[in-house]
Each structure stands twice: as C-alpha cells, then as structure tokens.
C-alpha cells in the first residue's frame, strides 16, 4: 500500500437515505435467500461504515436489526404489504452483519451473516400474561396438530395432494386447550382424492407452495380442527443469485428456533443450500 493513502472509511448517519438504501438491499437479500420461515423487515440500522473499494465503488459495512413478518418466505406478497409479527404473538428478531457494494448506483451484497432469536418469555409475559409462547416445533402436540390439519385439508381438496414442507411456528394455547400451528406445504403430482400411498407422490417440477394456519382444539372425547391454507401461484425454480465475495456466507435459517430444518426429502436442494458457507 503506497504511503499517504491510508484507508479511511466514510462516516454516514445510520438514518441517511444512502445507508437506508444499502440496508434495504440487505433485507431484500435475506428474504430472497431464506427459503424457510418468514420474511424479515428492517427495524433499525445499528452501525454503518462506508469503505472505498478499489478500483471503484464503495462497500457499506452494516449492522442491522430486523423483525419477523407474518408473510412466509414462499408467499409472493411484497414485503411492504407484510405485517410485522407483534410482541404479543411472540416476536422474532434478526441481528445481521452485511457488506454491501455500491457500484454505479447499484447495491449488491458481498457478505451476509444473520442470527435470529425469539423475544424472551419474560418480555411476552410482561406485555400479555396470558399469551401463548412459541412452542418447540417437535413437540408431540405440534406434530399431531399439523398432521391432523394437513390430512383435513387434503381430504377437502379437489386438486393436488399437498405434502408438508416445514412447520413454521406453533403455540400451545391453555384455554381452551388447543394447539395453533403454521406450516408450509407443496403440491404433488397426486390427486388428493386418489392418494393411497403419499410416499409415492412427487413434488411438481413447477413448484406450487401453500401456507396453512390451523388450530386443533381438544374436546371431551375428541378434537376439532380448523385449517386455512393459501395456495400460491406456481413458482419455477430459478437459480438463486450468489454473494460475490469470497467470504460470503449463507443466511442460516436454522439459527431461528421458530424455523425448523425441513425434512430433507421434501425440500428442493436449492432451498437447503443457498450459498457457499465459510
């Protein structure tokens, strides 16, 4: 490095429009690479440094906080139309480090690292003592509720048989005793009415995803299930853009306890590996 050309970063306000543009590019990157769980939205920009980049451009080194929305990542609803998950619903936040390159007025992500975590039980209880907390996704009641709900949905369906992709979140409600679950599904090449062996059904080449919300209520001598599924338009599987830098890492959805690692057989490989991991 020639003497006299010390590397200096530009100090920018966290709420500067240029910083915000870089942060929004980062959030867009998160949502386009997370193929499990929920879309996240920008909550706060914690830190920013803008480094000159040779031979041209600038690199925005960002620390940002995000919040989980109610839109599943497979839901094509634009982020702007997605609601933030409220504290009483047991909110989930993301802490992210990014390096975003600005070159010729365009932002592109060089490096991304995010961890997500649910709000503390104490915080939820302080605001809403009776509100249900997030439940472990492998809880037997949760697994049972998803199974019953998906079976009920397929039984009512005149179209494709839908297979479970992931359980996205769950809450055990004390009164009335019930289990609330949200889960993602995908259409198969079987007709729901004709399925005898679901294991023989394959996901469609042109993926069709759905997102379901269900409540299983325990009753004396049985249980009631209410399930609503939204089926999205078919989505051709496109190659995902990869980070440009050698140090780029994938956003790891497994960091979020509310987002399970999916069944390996059910999810396309592209949704399990979203980028080089260092």
């Amino acid at each position: 490095i020639p003497l006299g050309t010390a590397l200096t970063y530009r100090q920018l306000n966290c709420d500067d429009p240029e910083t915000e543009q870089a942060a929004l590019a980062a959030v867009d990157y998160i949502n386009s690479h997370m193929l499990q769980g929920y879309k996240h939205t920008l909550n706060q920009i914690d830190k920013v440094k803008v480094w000159p980049r040779r031979p041209m451009g600038e690199v925005f080194e960002l620390e940002i906080d995000t919040l989980e929305t109610t839109c599943h990542v497979l839901d094509p609803t634009p982020l702007a139309n997605c609601s933030v998950r409220q504290l009483v619903e047991h909110a989930v936040e993301g802490d992210c480090d990014f390096q975003v390159l600005k070159q010729d007025g365009q932002f592109s992500v060089l490096f991304a690292k995010c961890d997500s975590s649910p709000d503390s039980a104490e915080d939820v209880r302080r605001l809403c003592p009776g509100c249900p907390l997030l439940a472990p996704l492998n809880d037997t009641k949760v697994v049972h509720a998803v199974d019953v709900a998906l079976t009920a949905f397929n039984a009512q369906s005149n179209g494709s048989y839908f297979r479970l992709l992931e359980v996205s979140r769950a809450q055990l409600v004390p009164l009335p005793p019930s289990t609330y679950v949200e889960f993602a599904v995908a259409a198969t090449d079987c007709a729901a009415k004709d399925v005898t062996d679901p294991a023989k059904c394959n996901l469609l080449a042109e993926k069709q995803y759905g997102f379901c919300k269900a409540t299983l209520t325990e009753k004396v001598g049985g249980e009631d299930v209410a399930v609503t599924c939204t089926v999205f338009q078919t989505q051709p599987l496109l190659p995902q853009p990869q980070p440009e830098g050698p140090d780029a890492v994938a956003v790891d959805p497994r960091a979020d306890p509310a987002v399970p690692v999916p069944s390996q057989a059910d999810v396309p490989v592209a949704s399990l590996v979203v980028g080089p991991v260092v």
Partner: peptide, 27 residues
Amino acid sequence: TVVQPGIAVVPDPALRPCPGRIRYFKV
C-alpha cells in the same frame, strides 16, 4: 521511523449518527 499503516479515522465527537431510528419496536 516506523509508521504504522492502517486506519486513520477522525470522527466528529459531536456527531452521534448511530444507531438509527427504531421503525417498529425493540425486542
């Protein structure tokens, strides 16, 4: 004379630009 190459930053102590505003709520 040995000069330490590296970062030369002179932040304005009066400037407190970060963190930025909270858009929703703090978790």
